[in-house]
Each structure stands twice: as C-alpha cells, then as structure tokens.
Amino acid sequence: MSAILQEIRQLEAARDRGDISPEDFTKAKSRLLSTVEDATVLPQANRHPPPRATARQSGTTASTAWGMLLLALCAAAVMTVLVGQLVGDITIAFTLVVTVFAAIVVAAFRRLEG
C-alpha cells in the first residue's frame, strides 16, 4: 500500500510542477487505486494554493521585523561607542557597525517578504 501512496505523491508532484495535466493525473491515480481492493476514487476538488499574506495583512511578522530593526539600531549605537573606545577610531567603529546593521536590515526585510 505504501508503494501506491508513494506513486500517488510522485504523480501529485509532477502535476504541481506542470509535467502532467490534471486529467492525466486523475487517470493515473484512478488506475493506481483500481489495483487496490475497496478503493474509491473521489472527484478531484480544485486545489488552489491560499494567497500569501502581505506584510500589511500579517501584523505579527511586520511588528517583529520592525522590532528587530529598532533593536538593531540601539545595538548599533552601543556597538559604535564600545568599538570606538576599543579601537580608538570612531570612523572605523562606525563603518563596522553600519555594515553589521545593514546585514540585519537585509535579513529583516527578507523575513518580511516571506
């Protein structure tokens, strides 16, 4: 039975990739299930993926990302002062901190995109 389920999953993957048409999928699935006793093939419902939530619709993700940005900005200010004291040159410290902050901003906005 698991071999048939595996073949059905492969057929579903091929259908989702567009390698086979929905009609070919239904025929192949019916042929596979006909080999199993007491199997009933139900009509295929239209399967459309749910629409993705945008950043404005998903308040939790947006607030998390903005919170990360605020935290990163505060950390950047503290790091600039500390690294500036350690290195002795505020310009080098600021450059290092801005680079780290830019990486955090990119990561936050990638998270917003999904």
Rank of each mutant, 00 (worst) to 15 (best):
R17D: 13
V78R: 07
T40N: 03
A103P: 00
Q57C: 00
R15T: 08
G18I: 02
T91P: 00
V81K: 10
P51L: 07
D24K: 12
A13N: 10
A14Y: 05
Q6E: 13
E37H: 06
T26D: 13
R9P: 02
V83M: 10
A53K: 13
R56A: 12
G67A: 06
K27D: 09
E37R: 13
V36Y: 02
Q85W: 08
G18C: 04
D89G: 01
R9V: 09
V83C: 04
M79R: 08
V98R: 11
V36N: 01
F94E: 12
L82N: 03
E37P: 08
L32Q: 07
S30T: 15
V36S: 01
Q6S: 12
P22T: 08
D16V: 09
E7A: 15
V78N: 03
V36M: 14
E7F: 01
A72F: 02
H48V: 14
D38K: 14
V106D: 03
T80G: 10
A107M: 07
A13V: 08
E23S: 12
A13C: 01
V98W: 04
A45E: 12
F94V: 14
S58A: 11
Q85D: 10
R17F: 04
A14W: 05
E12T: 12
S58G: 00
V106N: 01
A39N: 02
G114N: 06
A102N: 02
T99V: 10
T61A: 10
T91I: 14
T64N: 06
C74R: 05
S63Y: 06
V36E: 08
L69H: 07
V78W: 11
K27T: 12
